[in-house]
Design a protein around this nucleic acid. Structure first.
Length: 254
DNA sequence: ATGACTCCCAGTGGGAGA
């Protein structure tokens, strides 16, 4: 069984690439972020025609998430229960015996800003909710665009990025707080190529120079640790014409 | 170098992303 996450940076622009990618990578479940579409504009028909059931939760211009699954997703949750939020950032469902949570963490913009404070509140609320979800659903996968580079080895230039957004102590502590609930960074269960990133800036030829960050993650619950066979970042779509700035991350469970 | 690119909504510029 394969699950994946991909920040598509506008589904309106990236839909053809998404369909191509699914044809080449027929994963069982995919969560996407930054659809940037209101719900009435979500292109469910071509996704369904590709063999997926899809649940979506969007808004105008920013954010927006969706969950695609080959088997019917059940018990859908949109955003963090009990956390009042104008922004569409979370979609969760039970698929194939797993609880799957797709999340688009706030960017945070700059340490000390209002947006950074929102990121911290949002992460606190997510953690409290995931803690409860793990009680109800021990076999759980939390994946998405975390907007956090957990360690210096997840940053192409740790000196330049020190203390910058995605790399602050506070954000890394939030990541560790999620892990402390009983989650495992699936990517780090395996030996990986050095300089593995999931995002490259559009500017400055960053992809060609492989200057990026690993900020898209798949966390699996401890109950699933023994089933994880592989976790890879698929750089191929980043080589497309008009690519998303993020690459998909794929996890294989036995 | 407080940049660089891309997307969006707007409307011939500016915010946001990361």
């Amino acid at each position: 069984m394969k699950l994946a996450t991909w920040n598509v940076n506008s589904l309106a622009v990236r839909l053809p690439q998404l369909l191509d990618w699914l044809a080449a990578n027929p994963v069982d479940t995919l969560v996407i972020q930054e659809t940037k579409l209101t719900d009435d504009k979500f292109p469910h028909a071509p996704i369904e025609a590709a063999g997926y059931e899809v649940k979506w939760f969007g808004q105008k211009t920013y954010n927006g998430v969706a969950l695609l699954a080959r088997t019917p997703p059940a018990d859908i949750v949109r955003n963090i229960p009990g956390f009042v939020d104008e922004q569409a950032r979370v979609i969760a469902a039970s698929v194939g015996g797993l609880r799957v949570i797709g999340a688009y963490f706030p960017n945070g913009q700059e340490p000390g800003s209002d947006k950074f404070a929102y990121k911290m509140r949002w992460c606190d609320a997510l953690r409290e909710w995931v803690k409860d979800e793990l009680v109800r659903h021990p076999e759980l996968v939390l994946m998405g665009d975390f907007n956090v580079a957990p360690e210096d080895r997840d940053v192409h230039d740790p000196v330049a990025w020190a203390g910058q957004i995605h790399c602050t102590d506070e954000e890394r502590a939030q990541f560790r707080g999620l892990v402390a609930l009983g989650l495992v960074d699936a990517f780090r269960l395996f030996e990986q190529p050095p300089k593995s990133w999931s995002w490259w800036d559009y500017r400055n030829l960053a992809f060609r120079k492989n200057q990026g960050l690993r900020i898209d993650h798949v966390l699996v619950s401890e109950a699933l640790r023994g089933r994880v066979r592989e976790c890879v970042i698929d750089k191929a779509p980043r080589k497309n014409e008009r690519p998303s700035d993020h690459a998909p991350v794929i996890v294989t469970l036995g």
